[in-house]
Design a protein around this nucleic acid. Structure first.
Lengths: 129, 129
DNA sequence: GTTGACCCTCACATGGATGTGATGGTTCGA
DNA sequence: TCGAACCATCACATCCATGTGAGGGTCAAC
């Protein structure tokens, strides 16, 4: 597919698809006329990129973790340098921290919303508690 | 405490503490000489802000969700406008998405790391699975 | 063969979080 | 009283993800 379709299917501006390519997160090939040609699988990858970006990871990090998320993992095991592994461990832990932080705060928001949605009497009861 | 101590205790540059104040995420009072004076509780709050920022939330949103995370929730229930509630619900869902995305990818990284750390035979076994 | 809808490559702009430094006031101990 | 170590404001700089648009090819349909 070409960039327009990918853009629509992923809800991602073309500009960003080109940007992700520039950051070497994706690597479309080109048809004779120079148009980018995207593989079907790239759809999922773009979604993943967006999700991670939205979760606060910079493209530099995403670029490093993407390769080890591909299903046939073993291919990439060979070229795992010690620094690479250290980076991944660190990033894994950072992601865990993020998950914890987000979960904690989301639960608090949910709890608040539940309280607000509850009728006034129950809210008053909470107030007196 | 003054800004220097808060900075050290939270690992946050002074610059950013002032920035968060400018964004009205925190509201220190001032001593006679104009120095910012921070309450003990602000330490946790700053950590929370940093965590949320790191998880990809903009200060604008953080500002909205912080009030409903304070323990005596009920105080803020009264001034909950419908738009406010809608915003919170949306943000709660966005946070859930982020948690899912992060968890998924973190688990994949962890799995990869386990595979890399494991000996070659077990990696081969995974490959054949 | 022209038009419209695609695509390309620049390149400059913006917004948000952060860095850095200039300039100057306050406090406190040597 | 002087100097170090705080603090203040202000302003400009940077990085990164994104927006926007100019100037120009490609191609299919009419």
């Amino acid at each position: 597919m070409r960039i327009g379709e990918l853009s629509e299917r992923t809800g991602t501006p073309r500009r960003l698809l080109r940007y992700y390519e520039e950051q070497t997160l994706i690597l479309p090939d080109r048809s004779a006329n120079g148009y980018r040609e995207y593989d079907e699988r790239i759809v999922d990858r773009v979604m993943q990129i967006r999700g991670l970006l939205d979760a606060g990871l910079p493209t530099r990090i995403i670029k490093q973790i993407l390769p080890c998320l591909d299903k046939p993992k073993v291919i990439h095991i060979s070229d795992a340098t010690p620094e690479m592994i250290a980076t991944l461990e660190l990033e894994r832990d950072r992601m865990t921290s993020r998950v914890n932080c987000l979960t904690r705060n989301r639960d608090a928001i949910a709890e608040y919303l539940d309280a607000v949605r509850g009728d006034v009497r129950s809210a008053g009861a909470v107030a007196r508690a």
